[in-house]
């Protein structure tokens, strides 16, 4: 269980990207929805311990993750919005490298990386250099990186950009399998959320505008309205309910 309390983030250029975000993420898939610039990526960066907030607290199972980021890092799988790679390494080499950083034994890492690449439709490209990958291929390498090891907390920042329907179905199937973990999914592709999300958080100008839970129980429908329509309405008009 991840608890964010009154998170504040101010960037060097004076932009206040998070203005007191308080949220609880339980096991299951929580979708982050909001316009570009609403602070989704910033929130995910804070959760992934990529940046430390200027104020507020972050706790993973009750442990303070701002002071001790390792409590999150040890259990984290994270795809940043801009997932950087070493251009000259092959997909498998790069994943093995990231696995080594997470202290996964080399043999297990290789097997796992190959399995993930296969599941994401990249088996034939496993031994090609990342410099030649298309945007959608790199996104899938990023997804594979997030699922290396056995992550308890999975943070995915626009993971399905550039994926075609088939690839997206593979991705959704992978998500389903990890439903018992805590998954934060920021995306503009609302069909992914409609298929998977347990909860939604609507963000606007660095604050939480609204949130809904219990979506799976309601089979992806709330008060008769499908998730996709709800998300679309929020982005278009700023009001989800």
């Amino acid at each position: 269980m991840l608890q964010c309390t009154d998170l504040q983030v101010r960037f060097g250029n004076g932009v206040q990207a998070l203005r007191g975000v308080t949220l609880r993420f339980d096991a299951g898939i929580t979708g982050l929805v909001g316009r570009n610039g609403s602070g989704k990526s910033t929130l995910m960066k804070v959760i992934a311990t990529s940046i430390t907030p200027n104020g507020g607290s972050l706790a993973w199972n009750g442990e303070d993750a701002v002071r001790r980021p390792d409590v999150i890092r040890g259990v984290l799988g994270y795809v940043p919005q801009y997932f950087g790679v070493y251009q000259n390494l092959t997909a498998i080499e790069f994943l093995e490298y990231l696995a080594a950083l997470r202290r996964i034994a080399p043999k297990a890492a290789r097997a796992r990386a190959l399995e993930l690449l296969d599941r994401l439709g990249l088996a034939s490209a496993a031994k090609r250099r990342l410099g030649g990958f298309s945007g959608g291929m790199l996104r899938r390498v990023g997804i594979a990186a997030a699922f290396l090891g056995d992550p308890q907390l999975i943070v995915l920042d626009e993971p399905s950009v550039g994926l075609d329907q088939y690839e997206r179905a593979n991705f959704v199937a992978l998500l389903e399998q990890y439903r018992d973990r805590t998954i934060v999914l920021g995306t503009h592709i609302f069909s992914d959320l409609a298929q998977t999300a347990d909860a939604l958080v609507f963000m606007d100008q660095g604050s939480v505008a609204d949130s809904v839970t219990g979506l799976r129980a309601g089979a992806g429908v709330r008060r008769g309205e499908p998730v996709e329509a709800m998300c679309e309405r929020f982005v278009m008009s700023g009001s989800p309910t």
């Binding site: 960066k45 990529s50 040890g74 984290l76 997932f83 950087g84 990231l98 950083l101």
Partner: peptide, 22 residues
């Protein structure tokens, strides 16, 4: 290249590897 342009810095700094190891 890691710290800014390629963005791999994010993957590195959110990994459990210590700064010493990196």
């Amino acid at each position: 290249r890691d710290t800014r342009p390629s963005g791999i810095g994010e993957s590195l700094r959110t990994s459990p590897a210590s700064n010493f190891a990196l």
